[in-house]
């Protein structure tokens, strides 16, 4: 699973699949991922038109460095198979499957993708999967879902449907989500895929959004689903390392490289042993800093 294994997914911007202007402008805001939405954003009587628009967008538009995914309609809807077979030939990076409740849901998509890829003459495994966990049942099955397909690159959490499914409601503190968010993080991290946090819908409240992203980062999420372009830069800012984190990571990597060159087995930085996980974490910090607009921004913070 080398596909984009080090790809950042700090921000995943939802774009309604039936709005050409928003689709064209989405890459301007440079989210790490764009999710063209055929599910909740599109009314039932517009599903076909939106699907055609998204297919045509994938065929003709340049999305630059952004990962481009399509959120397709759930496995048990009448649009599921048509979505998959129409999209595979235009090769989105991934399909995001809504309302995943079991490993079988993902396996079903995996199998259909395989057939469509073969029909389109594409190598099997070209199109990846992101699973959206949005119900109590999905949360309880998160660990098996995370391991359900080699195509799976990320697992996202959807809080709105989840709170419905546990017959609760969202509060600013988000205590009702704590177990579920943690379960998704642990399942995804254990499987080596990216956990992505739920959307935050108060788009005018930048401070609350950042607090929510900080909480998600602390829990272990790799990124945040975004519903408005203004949230992208804010999410990136939260995921940006601090100048201290960056300079420490650079020292770790330099010491490690130097030790490799010297053939030394054991490295210490500032009195602490540096081993594999610490090197990997340092590399991730530098990667994230590099992915931001400029290192200057990090250092200037």
């Amino acid at each position: 699973m080398t596909y984009m294994s080090n790809r950042l997914r700090r921000s995943m911007l939802f774009v309604p699949g039936n709005n050409p202007a928003l689709i064209i402008d989405a890459p301007v805001f440079t989210p790490d991922s764009i999710i063209l939405d055929l599910e909740d954003a599109v009314a039932v009587d517009q599903k076909d038109a939106a699907r055609e628009l998204v297919v045509s967008a994938l065929k003709t538009l340049d999305f630059g460095v952004c990962e481009v995914c399509v959120r397709i309609n759930g496995r048990h809807t009448p649009f599921f198979a048509a979505d998959v077979s129409a999209l595979v030939p235009v090769k989105p990076h991934a399909l995001r499957l809504a309302m995943v409740e079991s490993a079988e849901d993902v396996a079903c998509l995996d199998e259909l993708l395989g057939r469509c890829e073969a029909d389109a003459g594409l190598p099997v495994g070209t199109v990846k999967i992101m699973a959206s966990i949005e119900t109590a049942k999905g949360v309880m099955n998160a660990s098996t879902i995370a391991l359900s397909s080699p195509r799976l690159v990320a697992m996202s959490f959807g809080a709105e449907d989840f709170t419905n499914s546990i017959q609760s409601e969202r509060t600013p503190g988000g205590h009702e989500l704590l177990y579920a968010r943690t379960a998704v993080v642990l399942a995804a991290r254990a499987a080596g895929i990216d956990p992505i946090d739920t959307v935050f819908t108060l788009v005018e409240d930048d401070a609350a959004f950042k607090a929510d992203v900080r909480a998600a980062k602390q829990l272990g999420f790799a990124g945040k689903s975004c519903v408005h372009p203004r949230q992208i830069a804010l999410a990136h800012e939260v995921f940006l390392p601090t100048p201290e984190e960056l300079s420490k990571a650079e020292r770790v990597l330099a010491a490690y490289t130097e030790a490799l060159e010297r053939g030394a087995g054991v490295v210490a930085v500032e009195g602490r042993m540096v081993d594999g996980p610490i090197v990997a974490r340092a590399q991730r910090v530098v990667d994230i800093a590099n992915a931001s607009k400029s290192l200057r921004e990090v250092r200037a913070r």
Partner: peptide
């Protein structure tokens, strides 16, 4: 958001 992006 597009105009805000241009402003930035």
């Amino acid at each position: 958001p597009l105009e805000l992006h241009i402003a930035a």
